[in-house]
């Protein structure tokens, strides 16, 4: 099997080196590193990694901007946010822009490796904290009038997400709801897909409104 190709973006050299060392030691292929948003986007275009491990607080453009741009260039890229401060709004914005997962920097190297492998396989990495943010966001969306149904969560998806937020593992959720592990994963993935779709619709709507205003 081909090793997973990873790019590490962090403006703190010690962190960048530590993450890179852990990933290389585990047999992953670190194809690029970057210290700021601009070089991150340039090196992403040049190297096309499978996974981008991204710090949110980096010099312009920030992690949210980088996520939006590289996902636009290559929708199949998996962005794993690795953030120190865990600023709620930024984390949510990055996930809405297309990030596939989020870890705080205090996570152990084993947790980081597991997360990189999981996002590489196309699975989202949901911490309970992120599940809480996403639940809150869907609640906010549902309060807005006239949202199309395909952008709302089904009852089952809400139930699964709520359990993730309460700290249950996918295995525990599958047991409790009498579902397969795979089905639980699909539900979680769907919530992320809907959130990102809603974000694109919102952005488009905003662009159209701006465009009409300018005429």
């Amino acid at each position: 099997m081909e090793p997973i190709r990873v790019m590490v973006v962090d403006d703190h050299p010690m962190w960048r080196d530590a993450v890179e060392r852990d990933l290389v030691a585990a047999g992953l292929d670190v194809v690029a590193v970057a210290a700021d948003g601009r070089s991150a986007i340039a090196r992403f275009t040049a190297t096309r990694p499978d996974v981008v491990v991204l710090d949110l607080q980096i010099p312009e453009p920030d992690g949210v901007g980088v996520t939006a741009e590289i996902v636009r260039q290559d929708p199949s890229v998996r962005v794993l946010i690795l953030s120190a401060s865990g600023e709620q709004q930024d984390v949510l914005a990055a996930v809405k822009a297309g990030a596939a997962g989020y870890l705080v920097k205090s996570a152990s190297s084993q947790e980081l490796l597991a997360a990189v492998r999981r996002v590489a396989q196309g699975e989202p990495v949901f911490t309970p904290g992120l599940a809480g943010l996403v639940l809150g966001e869907f609640q906010r969306i549902s309060e807005a009038p006239a949202e199309p149904d395909d952008q709302r969560l089904t009852e089952r998806e809400t139930e699964v997400l709520r359990m993730v937020a309460k700290g249950l593992s996918y295995r525990q959720i599958a047991d409790r709801l009498v579902l397969s592990h795979r089905t639980v994963q699909n539900h979680v993935q769907n919530t992320l897909r809907k959130l990102q779709m809603h974000n694109r619709v919102e952005l488009t709507r905003y662009a159209i409104e701006r465009g009409l205003d300018e005429e």
Binding site: W15, A18, Q57, A84, S85, K105, S106
Partner: peptide
Amino acid sequence: ARVVHDGVLQVLALVQRRGLE
């Protein structure tokens, strides 16, 4: 303050990580 806090958090997290290793 955000910039300073972020720096402090980064270093604390790094010390934790390397220390445990």
